[in-house]
Design a protein around this nucleic acid. Structure first.
Length: 548
RNA sequence: GCGCCCGUAGUUCAGUGGAUUAGAAUAUUUGAUUCCGAUUCAAAAGGUCGUAGGUUCGAUUCCUACCGGGCGCGCCA
């Protein structure tokens, strides 16, 4: 069943095609809800957009569209062409209110749509090294990636959520050394931690665990053997903790891809072999370089270092090839702003190997600065001063933490003031929305059942009409937020929905309405609102409590 | 120096495929509860949309330069 917007768009598209003999691409015709509702229920700037194509006055075009549409679409009460050429639609009350029963019958499924049907997408996010706890720097990307995939799934995309574990290479060696030194420290020896080792308290914790489990066994074995042991135990235990924290923070994954597995698979070697055949690499200064400059990079990049080991770049190329070979047509990565310079070279590598130009899309997560008492708190994992995701959530709550990151667009820099987040946790916008839901539930739970309503002829107040219109735009909002990978659009939707629900509540007596008909109609609208709020919050991984 | 991101109300942030009067929250001021939860509602006030040019009938939005802030520019990951 089409929403009112969809019906309008479809009818407008037909008019453009039949009346003006113009073929326009999908998305050309846009219908929006005007800010000022006295202008009508919906409006379109179509006439103005057509001026360039038809080379005619927008007012004239508008009038013609008006005539064509008035008798064509029975949901329309009236059409007005206003100002520079906006077309405002007044929709019949009966057409608007149909959505209420639609929502009630769809329940948890209301909002789901098929806008992404047929698209196979692999989304990689977080992918933090298993060398420490997840901290504030990861928190933004984690919840953002999580919600984008929730939106994808709701919009019919075939989507895989993947975490790429960098469990090989230098940083894991450093973890092993750090752990070894901390372990020795527990037996009274002076630790010799390298500067680029890991100094955090988590490493000490793991050392203690290992002492508990293995005693002094690893003081007395060959150092190389001991280091291998500490590397493996270290990364396994750090990863386990990462998984626990992500779970607590409600960020889910379908797939955990390991760099070690990738290295063992031979895909790196075969990729380099392929590049050699394609003359994409050359040797210089005892290293193997890739000609990325031929594909837009500003310098060539080393794949194999002069000591024979791989740079980070080499396995990462293989990682992306592996994703493509698994059948994904679109690869989405969320990377921190400190990695943005890396995008060009990965794209260059994929292009060089003959993959479609835009198969990889990287969204950059701008920096989060942690402030406390007006001063910046540095977030270094290695100094042990980092505020972890766990600490953050314990402090201000998971709902609040998630919502804080989700309301801000990804490309803006963000100051996270812990003091403010803490002190404001009571009038945090997320509670405003949750309260709207809880209030609705309170009323709905107080009636045995809601009588089915055929005609919503009594819901005519501004508050009721605004609410109904907003409810009806939910599926489209979900589809747009998914397509743009912009969960913040859902937050905007939720804030407005909460506002409309509260205004409705304040102006409309529901349980003791003037008549039984009115009561039932209002209860149905409230039920539809509650369902929509529940579904919207759930798309962001936020609780919709029955009471607070 | 080069590249990417940001600069909108006192504050935190939305917004725009150029278009009807630039929005919300918060803080400030004022009003509203005999009645479904006041964690609420209603209203006022608050803006040269960083600066200067350009394109346009029209620019906060597009283009250029500049200013300010952040982040990159390794045979680190």
């Amino acid at each position: 069943m089409l929403t009112v917007e969809e019906k309008l768009v479809k009818a407008l598209e037909e008019v453009v095609k039949e009346r003006f003999q113009v073929d326009v691409e999908e998305g050309f015709v846009m219908v929006e809800v005007p800010k000022d509702s006295s202008k009508g229920n919906y409006a379109t700037n179509l006439a103005m957009r057509l001026t360039k194509i038809l080379r005619r006055n927008p007012q004239e075009i508008g009038q013609e569209i008006r005539e064509a549409l008035l008798n064509k679409l029975d949901i329309i009460e009236d059409i007005e062409v206003a100002g520079p050429g906006f077309i405002n639609f007044q929709i019949k009350n009966t057409a608007m209110t149909e959505i209420i029963n639609t929502i009630i019958s769809q329940g948890d499924d209301y909002g789901k749509n098929q806008s992404g049907k047929g698209q196979r997408v692999l989304v990689e996010y977080v992918s933090a090294n298993p060398t420490g706890r997840l901290h504030l720097g990861h928190a933004r990307g984690a919840v953002w990636g999580d919600c984008c995939t929730r939106l994808y799934n709701a919009s019919g995309y075939d989507c895989l959520r993947e975490y790429y574990i960098n469990d090989a290479g230098h940083q894991i060696d450093m973890l092993g050394v750090s752990l070894y030194e901390r372990y020795k420290e527990l037996f009274g020896q002076t630790p010799d931690l390298p500067d680029d080792g890991y100094h955090g308290p988590d490493v000490i914790e793991i050392a203690k665990e290992l002492k508990e489990e293995f005693g002094d066994k690893y003081l007395n074995v060959d150092k190389q053997e001991a280091l291998a042991f500490f590397r493996n135990e270290g990364k396994a235990r750090e990863l386990k903790q990462i998984k626990i924290d992500l779970d607590y923070y409600r960020c889910e994954f379908d797939s955990w891809a390991s760099e070690t597995d990738l290295r063992n698979s031979g895909l790196i070697e075969s990729s380099i072999e392929k590049m050699k055949e394609m003359d994409l690499v050359y040797e210089a200064e005892d290293a193997l370089w890739m000609r990325t400059t031929k594909f837009g990079d500003d310098k060539d990049r080393v794949l194999v270092k002069n000591d024979g080991t791989y740079t980070y770049f080499a396995p990462d190329i293989a990682n992306h090839i592996n994703k493509i070979e698994r059948g994904y047509q679109k690869l989405i990565n969320f990377w921190g702003a400190d990695h943005h310079g890396y995008i060009t070279r990965v794209k260059a590598a994929l292009t060089a190997l003959g993959y479609p130009k835009d198969i990889l899309e990287v969204d950059i997560i701008q920096m989060v600065r942690l402030m406390e008492n007006g001063e910046e708190v540095k977030m270094s994992k290695r100094t042990g001063n980092a505020v972890t995701i766990r600490e953050l959530c314990d402090d201000i709550g998971v709902d609040s933490a998630r919502y804080f990151f989700l309301t801000k667009a990804l490309d803006t820099h963000l100051d996270f003031d812990l003091g403010v987040a803490r002190s404001k946790s009571n009038d945090n916008p997320v509670y405003y929305a949750q309260y709207a839901h809880a209030r609705s539930c309170k009323i709905l739970n107080s009636v045995e059942r809601i009588a089915e309503v055929q005609q919503f002829n009594l819901l005519t107040s501004n508050q009721e009409v605004d609410l109904i219109k907003h409810l009806s735009s939910f599926p489209e909002t979900v589809a747009n937020a998914a397509a743009d990978r912009a969960p913040n659009k859902m937050c905007n939707y939720i804030q407005k929905l909460a506002q409309f629900i509260h205004a409705y509540y304040a102006t409309s007596r529901i349980l003791n309405a003037d008549s039984e008909d009115l009561k039932n109609q209002r209860l149905s609208l409230l039920k539809a609102s509650q369902i929509t709020m529940h579904n919207a919050l759930s798309l962001l991984g936020i609780d919709a409590p029955q009471e607070m």
